[in-house]
């Protein structure tokens, strides 16, 4: 058998494929595909405010790169990584963290990043490489700002005295007590969420993590 026969053979297969494609089925697939595309683009907007595990790049490329294999979930020794369900839109099957229910403990060796087969979680060598988000203090509900000695977020912070520092200021109308005001330093805060997990105020929690890079949609 010569080379030509071989090539013929290959083409024969291809031919079969094309011939076997019913036009109508093809149309259906096409329409379905387009509809799916529309749906996906819409759903994509739905994942913006979810906190991703360490090493996630911006949301779009994260969604592109995450193979939804759940290895990070299995690798997390603290069982805090959850898997997105249908309500996460296209984020379905992707890992995320709800700090209030279990914050990232910033393991020294980052097993979640270590096991990621794609680059969805990557680029983390040390804690300061992490940029999951940034903590935001709810100034209305924080009891430390009212003068109570709380600052649980500050003492729980794994980057104590860097990511959260205390601003000592005299309490208004009281010259013998100080307000220990937690200050979040964006350049150091990695967004692990331990502060949110530990905060003693509920409904609403007085310190929350704003997921990284929330950008305008419009």
């Amino acid at each position: 058998m010569d080379e030509r026969t071989k090539v013929q053979y290959v083409f024969l297969d291809m031919e079969k494929v094309v011939l076997n494609m019913n036009f109508l089925t093809g149309l259906k697939v096409l329409v379905g595909g387009l509809a799916g595309y529309q749906l996906l683009s819409l759903m994509k907007k739905g994942t913006r405010s979810v906190l991703r595990p360490p090493g996630a790049s911006d949301e779009d490329s994260f969604l592109a790169q995450c193979i939804r294999c759940d290895k990070c979930v299995q690798a997390c020794p603290h069982d805090v990584i959850k898997v997105g369900d249908a309500s996460h839109g296209v984020g379905i099957g992707t890992p995320y963290i709800v700090p209030r229910e279990g914050a990232c403990q910033l393991c020294e060796d980052f097993p979640c990043v270590e096991v990621c087969p794609t680059e969805a979680l990557s680029g983390i060598k040390k804690v300061s490489d992490v940029k999951m988000g940034v903590a935001v203090l709810d100034r209305e509900n924080c009891i430390a700002l009212k003068g109570n000695r709380c600052e649980v977020c500050y003492r729980a912070c794994p980057l104590i005295d860097q990511a959260i520092t205390i601003n000592y200021k005299l309490r208004e109308g009281d010259n013998i007590h100080t307000i220990f005001e937690p200050i979040i330093n964006k350049e150091y805060c990695v967004g692990c969420g331990i502060c949110e997990e530990r905060c003693v105020v509920s409904e609403p929690v007085a310190i929350r993590i704003k997921p990284r890079e929330i950008e305008g949609l419009f």
Partner: peptide
């Protein structure tokens, strides 16, 4: 359904993945 359909589906999925920047089938 013709057994070659699945090749087309696979191709469409790859095309969709490319277009939507999402690993479509993995969802």
């Amino acid at each position: 359904v013709n057994r070659y359909t699945k090749i087309w589906i696979a191709l469409i999925i790859l095309a969709l993945s490319f277009a939507s920047s999402l690993p479509v089938y993995e969802m």
